[in-house]
Design a binder for these strands. Structure first.
Lengths: 123, 123
DNA sequence: ATGAATGCAAATCGTTTGCATCGCA
DNA sequence: TGCGATGCAAACGATTTGCATTCAT
């Protein structure tokens, strides 16, 4: 992979962001073609540097893969996102449970939805 | 809400299916316009009779809301889906954990991805 | 008969592809 | 200089919308 400006800027944005970012968000901070962003993200995901995150809408969001494994609290009112650390890794909980008929779990996807402090006050 | 043929047929399909179904799937078993299916599903979701499920692709799948709360094992090779029952409800695990700064969790979304028995053999 | 449900076509939105050009290594 | 990176326009797939028509109550 080449060391291009776009790539550096993309990684910088992903690093400084504290939450998963959508392509639209990235585009508003970059002056590059959206196709390029999609392609860069794609290769970063394939290279294992970036992770895809999906919330309840149709667009994919992206996050640095180097972040420790964690999950999100998504506010359904204002769309704000914060991290949540769970006491036990869900994967290990699932693996304790036997009847999976040889299904090999590779990863999981867990997000929590609700109202953030601000929105639950004003609601 | 009216008691229409489409609605009955839709609910019948959702009932007989053992896994979350996409709109495309539903359409292949019905002779109605896709717009109608989308609108029916929308009102069923709003009425709390049907639940949206999202896997790793971009399309939404639908499931009867009357099913007991559960999660899925999704095979990334053949797209088959089976249910998994977790020993503890994740919501209760999350609620045990304090530092959420007033965030009120309303629901969560959890899916497991991996290889089903058949695909992990042939892989 | 009246408003909800339906069908159809066109629009929208996020994402992908084809193809020509550009620029690191 | 060669191949990966980029831009642009057009294609694509899932979903939504506008509007006229039909049907359940």
């Amino acid at each position: 992979m080449r060391q291009t400006k776009t790539r550096k800027k993309l990684l910088a944005l992903l690093t400084s962001a504290r939450r998963p970012i959508s392509v639209a968000d990235l585009l508003s901070h970059l002056s590059v073609n959206k196709t390029t962003v999609y392609r860069q993200l794609d290769s970063l995901v394939k290279a294992g540097q970036v992770t895809e995150v999906r919330f309840s809408d149709r667009k994919v969001r992206y996050e640095l893969a180097s972040l420790p494994h964690h999950h999100h609290l998504v506010c359904t009112a204002c769309d704000s996102v914060r991290d949540i650390d769970l006491p036990d890794d869900i994967e290990s909980i699932a693996s304790k449970f036997p009847n999976r008929d040889g299904f090999v779990i590779q990863n999981h996807y867990l997000e929590f939805f609700g109202l953030c402090a601000k929105c639950s006050r004003h609601e």
